[in-house]
Amino acid sequence: MAFEIKKEAYTGGIKTISIGKGDSAVTVGGETCYPFYTFEGDMPNKPLIAMEIWDMEPTDWAEAALVPFKDVVADPAAWAKKCVDEYGAEAIVLQLKSIDPNDRDASPQSAAETVKKVLDAVSVPVIVWGCAAPTKDEEVMKVVAEVCQNKNLLLGPVEEKNYKGIAAAAMGYGHSLIASSPIDVNLAKQINILLENFGMPMDRVVVDPTTGGLGYGMEYSYSVMERLSMAAMSQGDDKLQYPMINNLGNEVWKCKEAKESAEDAPLLGDPEKRAILMEAVGAVAYLLCGSNILIMRHPEAIRLAKEYIKAMIA
């Protein structure tokens, strides 16, 4: 008798969501099998890799991550444009680092202006990531949503403490949301339910399960994402059938080994190549546990991850 693979009996799938508007809109999600298990289901939309830019000049980036963008880090619009024109970015993530109350505490208006400039500079979807201080993010996202009406930005992170304000703005001005929770299946479900009960159209929500860096807690995110996929697809839990997003570049590049120079860590070899591979190997792990939108930083790590995705869906 010929060998046959034992197939999983799926009872649900991941919803599709579109981000961006018009010709530049991109669709993610829609899979009816575990990530890349295309021998027993469909994965109609490939995972999206979104390139990360900051709204202020980074002061603590590793040299390797800075080099490709040296000429543009002071100008988010130029930075975004470079990502798209030179590195073929499929989406841009603008990290609003300047609004952090513990840092520069920039105003909602100034943040919204930056978002607008970036939006005007590129023709790919734009994701806006706050500073994870709930009250401040709520203030800022409300203004961003209004200034960039009907552009279908993806706004987040949205959590229990600030979902009402941000969701109201997203509904009023036509944007999508990132529902965020700290590495826990039940908490992920809870924020989705809160949004749904609040009236947020749930075909405009992606889930941020919280991302741990390679060697710095990735295992927790990895397993929670596998459990979320299982709940969504094998247990048919319709409160968890949303695409997932991971803020990977930010986590990988902040860890010590991604920053150390060749002199600091001779054993770790070339700092550029080492950090690129830390980001790219991390990306593979996140793709395999179900990431639909992967936020990454270095153009070469992104190129490698895209090449891998291409081979996997060929």
Binding site: L214, M218, M278
Partner: peptide
Amino acid sequence: LTTEALFPLLLERLNIYTDP
């Protein structure tokens, strides 16, 4: 075996094989 590739792989292995 190059250090630049091996180190990330060993980190990934450490993470995936940690007892949850």
